[in-house]
């Protein structure tokens, strides 16, 4: 067969802008795998998560860091995301091998596109699009929420005092970037 090569072109690859001291960028090689807890076997799955990632799955609306800088986000009673860095398109088999079949896993890497917002303007900018209360008392480091911003579903995770990881659908990446950038421009 002929030599055809597939090139990876994630939609927001290379986005990196500064607005004063606040940085907006698309993290490289973000991998996301969903973990579904089988009905009736949740305890075994939680155990497998603990041994696979070295961390307990947190309560819904929270995230924790596990081995190899993997962030475990609990989205609901029977669903979680593992978010980590991996360039190759084999994130799902990787997580499946860590969990040894104790959970249903689905590759979500290309379903989403990610933006990191880090700096003193982050919260002020998000005020323009995010209905969630991001006051540190209400949304502390590690907190995670799925919500809607400018008609787009967004998973927002506070990764630091002034840092937020935003995930939204990859097909609408352009609108998503525009929404966040406009917010930053409007508050700069």
């Amino acid at each position: 067969m002929a030599d055809f090569t597939l090139i990876a072109e994630p939609p927001l690859k290379g986005v990196d802008h500064n607005f004063g001291d606040t940085r907006l960028y698309a993290p490289d090689d973000l991998a996301i795998v969903s973990i579904a807890l089988p009905l009736g076997a949740e305890d075994a799955t939680l155990q497998a998560v603990k041994s696979g990632f070295g961390a307990d799955l947190p309560a819904p609306g929270q995230s924790v860091m596990g081995n190899d800088d993997t962030r475990l986000v609990r989205l609901g009673p029977d669903q979680a995301f593992a978010i980590f860095t991996r360039a190759t398109p084999d994130a799902e088999p990787h997580v499946q091998s860590l969990l040894k079949g104790a959970a249903y896993t689905t590759d979500q890497t290309d379903v989403w596109t990610g933006l990191m917002l880090d700096g003193p303007l982050a919260r002020t900018a998000l005020e323009r699009i995010c209905p969630i209360d991001l006051h540190p008392d209400a949304f502390a480091e590690g907190a995670a929420a799925r919500t809607v911003m400018e008609h787009l579903g967004v998973l927002i995770i506070r990764t630091g005092p002034d840092a937020f990881l935003l995930l939204s659908a990859s097909s609408s990446a352009g609108s998503f970037l525009h929404a966040v950038e406009t917010s930053l421009v409007n508050v700069t």
């Binding site: 309560a59 819904p60 609306g61 609901g76 009673p77 209905p131 929420a145 919500t147 809607v148």
Partner: peptide
């Protein structure tokens, strides 16, 4: 019940 108060728009 799990996530606290959310706007009905969600």
């Amino acid at each position: 019940p799990l996530l606290g108060p959310r706007d009905a728009a969600e």
